[in-house]
Structure formats: structure tokens, C-alpha cells
Computed example of a mutant assay.
Amino acid sequence: MSRPIQAVIHLDALAHNLQVAKQSARQNVSDAHVYAVVKANAYGHGIERVYEAFKQADGFALLDIAEAKRLRALGWQGDILMLEGIFSLQDLLDCHQLKLSFSIHSAHQIDWLRQFQYSYPQAQFDVFVKMNSGMNRLGFIPEAYAEAWVELQKLSIVRSLTHMMHFSDADGERFGESGIQYQYQCFQHMVQQFPAPVTVSNSAAILRHSTVLQSNIARSGIMLYGSSPDYPQHTIHDWQLQPTMTLRTEIIGVQTLQAGQSVGYGSNFLAEKTMRIGIAACGYADGYQRVSPTGTQVLIDGQTSGLIGRVSMDMLAVDLTHLPDSDIGSEVVLWGKASNGAVLPIDDVAKASGTVGYELMCAVTQRVPFIVDARRIPAESAA
């Protein structure tokens, strides 16, 4: 018999969240395209597992050529955008052969395009020109953006150009004003000189600012995977998102602690009274955070309980004192959906561990079996 831990991917929830992204992104731009961001192996969910749910996306966005090849192998013929652009001259050949779009954020990448044009003058690329309007990671600073745009217009292998930027604070405020205002004003001032499509919206901007943004292409990422981009200000319930991954296991042992007794390494939890605890088959070698403290929420048979003591490599302890009917074999949900329909949002678990939902879903390790819950995917018109 295999160890009872599983990660379940919910296709209906993935498809539902995509429809939420489309509805939100099209509030100001009625024909906005919504791309599904599937970088980091679809945020730990698996590109092959989520593909069926995301086939109604207008495009995909990711980072790695290898992941782009996986999408093409699945049969996707639409646009694939390489968010970090090209990393070498060789990448341009792959982009040409796979028909990939990509960002350009540095002068050396334009030089690669010039070199590539000599050898492959028949190539045609859709290029996204990235501005650094305050995020200060990738992109041309405003003073250099216009020159880069003009240089790219001169290249015959550049079929189209799209303005691109990334918000640093779309999930909140910056110095008492809207988190998008300082970047968006800078961006708008520059791009008005060169009429072309624009992509600015990430998940936080899609949900919070779509009524005021002009974004012809929206890049929906974390919201697709059942995590709120501005948690705790808003939860997934506020945004009508659904959890897309459930990490679940079972109770494999039960112990009774007397007052003063401890459980687990370090004896950092001491019972203040008689307690009944369950030992669940999940630990940090499965991707659950070792730093998760006592009290971190779990669902046991669909009812709320909490972590007890230190997380081990393969096991953790949970409180069964108030759950007399729970025993060996009882379901333990570390995040996601319980069998009775109860939901433990991944954001709640992440907050207790001092991190974000992104990290938890991406950290589930290879030894955890993944299964796909392939119940009916809602039609686009039903959203």
C-alpha cells in the first residue's frame, strides 16, 4: 500500500479562475486577451495537468524554452510569450522554430536580433518591449525606451511590437497612493509616442485596477491557481476564486499526551492538559514548511484543527482533542478542499508560515503523487 499523501489538481477550479480573470480584465478593454501564466511548471501544478483547463486562454506565458516545447507538444498552436525574453542568440532559433513571442528588455538582446536577421531574414517575431518604470528588475529605463523601440522598428524580422511593463505594487498602495499610479503615469507618457498594443496587468492589476487600465493583453498568474494576489486585504472568497490544489494525507497514528508531555523534535510544544493527537503522513520532505508553527490550520475530516509541535521530514502532529470521531485513516487536508466541501485557502496556511501561497504550491516535492480531479470543466459561457 502506498503512502497516503496526495496532491490533487482541480481542473474545474482552474477553468473557473480563468473565467474570473477574463471577466475582470475586460472591464475597460472589452476585447482584452488574457494569457495564462504557466511558469515554474504552472506554479507547481504541472503544465500537462492544467492544460485542458486553460485551453480557453488567449495565450500562454512562461520563462523556459523547454516548457514552451511541452506546450507545443500538447497541441497548443496559439501564442506563447517568453516573459524574461531570450537568454542567448541560440534562443532566437528556438523561438523561430516554435513560433514564440518574447520580451526585449536590454540592448544586447537587440544586438542578437540584428545578428539573427543576417542568417534568417525570413524569420518573423512578435516582440514585447519592456519598460522599467519603477520595478527596477528588467526593462529599458524611460530615457532609453524610445531609442530601443525605434531600433526594433528598423528590423525586418520584427513583425509587431507591444509595449510591456510590470507593476511592483498593484496589490496595495505606495506612499499613500494607488500602487499603480507612479509607474502607470510614467509608462503612459512614453508609450503615447508609439501607438501599439499594451500589456501591463498582472493578477493584482487584473482584479484591482482593470477599470482604469488600458491593457490589451493581461497576464493572469497566481489568481488562476486559487491564491489572492493581495491577501490578506482580500481573500480568494472576496475575488470569487477557487482553490486549485489540495494537499491531503491521512492520520497514520494516534497518541495521548498528558499535561507536561511533548511531541516531536526539540520538545517545543508541551501539553497543558490531556490531549489526543494524530500523526499525519506529511513533512518537509513533501514540501510542507518546516517552519510552520503550532496552530497552523489543517482540516481533519473537514473540520478545523491545528498543527502541534515541530514538522518532521515525513510526519507532523495535529490536534484531535476536540474530534473524538477522527482516528487512523481520517483525512487531513493541509490546504485546499476537503471531501465534505470545506476549504482551507493556501493563503491562510502560507501566512502562518511567514510566506506566500506561491511558495507552498511550487514547493510540493517529487515524492508526492499528483492526481487530477477531472470533473466537468465549466463552459466559457457559463462563467
Rank of each mutant, 00 (worst) to 15 (best):
N132M: 05
R159F: 07
E143H: 03
V129W: 02
M131D: 04
L113C: 07
D126R: 11
N132K: 01
R114Y: 13
Q122R: 03
I157M: 14
H105A: 14
L155N: 11
M131P: 09
A123H: 06
N132Q: 05
L161H: 03
A146M: 06
E173M: 12
Q153D: 15
Q109F: 07
F167C: 06
I141N: 04
K154P: 08
M165E: 04
A146I: 04
L161Y: 03
L113A: 06
P121E: 05
E143T: 13
A146H: 13
G134Y: 09
L113F: 10
L138M: 13
V158E: 11
D171V: 00
M131L: 01
E143Y: 03
R174F: 09
Y145G: 08
V127C: 02
W112P: 06
G139P: 11
L152M: 04
E147K: 08
Q117D: 13
R159Y: 01
Q153F: 11
A170R: 01
V127R: 04
D171F: 10
H108V: 13
K130M: 14
F116E: 02
P142R: 12
P142Q: 10
E151L: 15
Q117A: 15
M131E: 06
D169S: 04
I110C: 10
A148N: 05
F128C: 01
P121V: 13
R137C: 03
Q117L: 12
W149S: 00
Y120Q: 12
F125H: 05
Q122A: 09
G139K: 08
A146F: 08
M131T: 02
N136T: 01
E173N: 07
M135A: 09
E147I: 00
F167K: 08
L113R: 10
S119R: 08
F167M: 04
G172Q: 08
G139R: 07
I141D: 08
I157R: 09
R159W: 02
Q115M: 11
Y118G: 00
V150M: 15
F167P: 03
M165H: 13
S160N: 13
V129N: 00
H163A: 15
Y145M: 04
E143G: 03
A146P: 03
S156K: 15
V158K: 12
M165I: 02
S156F: 13
Y120P: 02
A170K: 02
V150N: 15
S156Q: 15
F140S: 10
E151Y: 09
T162A: 08
Y145L: 02
F116H: 09
P121Y: 09
E143K: 10
F167T: 02
A146V: 09
H105S: 14
S119T: 10
Y118A: 15
V127D: 01
M131H: 05
A148I: 00
L138G: 06
